[in-house]
């Protein structure tokens, strides 16, 4: 049975997109945290989390985003979220993330939003 997380990074025009698929729960959150930490350590502060392939998220995954956002925003960057299913959006909505994080429908819109800031 597949219980794991799948991630890959695409870097383009000073924006790093982390594509996250599979299951983001207490079992896999540490892998997700390591990936985000590596992005930050290599100077990527404009980060898009693309959740098109994400099947599930729990508070363990939300906690990783919350735990790194301050550092990133202190460097004039941001973590923006995109392409999540209604099921995933529901979890973000339950904890009030839509008022704290920018969430876009498409990858293209999310990339443009970074452009419009600078």
């Amino acid at each position: 049975m597949q219980t794991d997380i799948k991630m890959n990074i695409v870097e383009k025009d000073e924006i790093a997109t982390l594509h996250v698929g599979g299951y983001l729960d207490a079992h896999t959150a540490s892998k997700f945290e390591s990936k985000i930490q590596k992005l930050i350590q290599s100077g990527n502060y404009n980060i898009i989390l693309n959740f098109a392939e994400l099947e599930y998220i729990s508070s363990a995954g939300l906690g990783v985003i919350m735990g790194n956002i301050e550092d990133i925003r202190n460097h004039d960057g941001d973590i923006k979220l995109t392409e999540m299913s209604d099921k995933i959006y529901r979890v973000f909505d339950l904890v009030g993330f839509p008022s704290l994080y920018e969430i876009y429908k498409t990858q293209e819109e999310t990339e443009s939003s970074f452009g419009s800031k600078s």
Binding site: S58, S59, G63, M66, I69, E70, R73, G96, L100
Partner: peptide, 21 residues
């Protein structure tokens, strides 16, 4: 938990979600 969320701090989300769900 709401205060922590507003301050962008993690923690306490699990039981908060249980009560919401």
């Amino acid at each position: 938990v709401q205060k922590r969320l507003n301050n962008l701090q993690r923690g306490g989300l699990g039981i908060f979600l249980m009560k919401k769900a």
